[in-house]
Amino acid sequence: MLTRAAAALAATIGTSVLALAPAEARPDVVSYRGDYAPGTIVVKTNERRLYLIVDSDRAIRYPVGVGKAGKQWAGTARIEGKYRDPAWAPPADVKRDHPNIPDVIAGGSPSNPMGVAAMTLSGGGQYAIHGTNKPQSVGHFVSYGCIRMYNADIDDLYQRVSIGTPVVVTQR
């Protein structure tokens, strides 16, 4: 895992060309072909993978947990907010399905499903890319539409992108 200082040196934040992290980084740098600008986040729901586009030939790939049946979505958004140890208020559909969940769970609490960081997406604040307190859920169809990442991975991605970063979610 990179230290914060090393990660800051290893990555260019924002939608400019991204520097690749040293070999110790968890995420995979993979060959990638697509029509996305460098700095774009692409989530392929059926693969349960998130790609941060580096250039026309490469992306950084992370495993993710995605929306369960009936809760998946596809479309475009932008990162609207970035938060460390965020508090979490369950959306109405989560509260309806689990009425005993508290109205707010404090950031840093072991029961907070947002993990160490969250990046909210434009479009009403319903969805986010965030860490998780249930790492076993990464790689599965598990959420109400949010994109779950290992805490180490959301920390890495958080340092690489900025507010305004485009996000594309596909079901391919």
Rank of each mutant, 00 (worst) to 15 (best):
D156I: 02
Q72T: 10
N100F: 10
L20W: 13
Y158F: 07
A37V: 00
C146P: 11
L121S: 04
P86H: 01
V116P: 06
D103W: 09
D55H: 13
P135D: 02
K44S: 11
K71P: 07
P63R: 05
Q126C: 06
T15H: 13
R33M: 11
S111R: 05
R148T: 00
I105Q: 01
D55T: 06
A25Y: 10
A19Q: 14
P90F: 00
E47F: 15
S31A: 13
M1N: 03
P113Q: 04
R4F: 14
T15A: 14
Y158A: 03
V29N: 09
D55K: 09
R33A: 13
V64Q: 05
V94K: 01
Y32M: 13
P110R: 02
L20A: 10
S137H: 02
A23N: 03
G81Q: 13
G65V: 01
V17A: 11
S31R: 00
S162G: 07
Q171K: 15
G115V: 01
G145Y: 09
E47H: 15
S122T: 15
D55L: 13
Y62E: 04
P102L: 06
E24K: 13
G123S: 07
Q159D: 09
V66K: 08
V42G: 11
D153K: 00
H130W: 05
S143M: 00
A5N: 11
T12F: 12
R33K: 02
Y36I: 04
P27N: 08
G125S: 03
A74D: 03
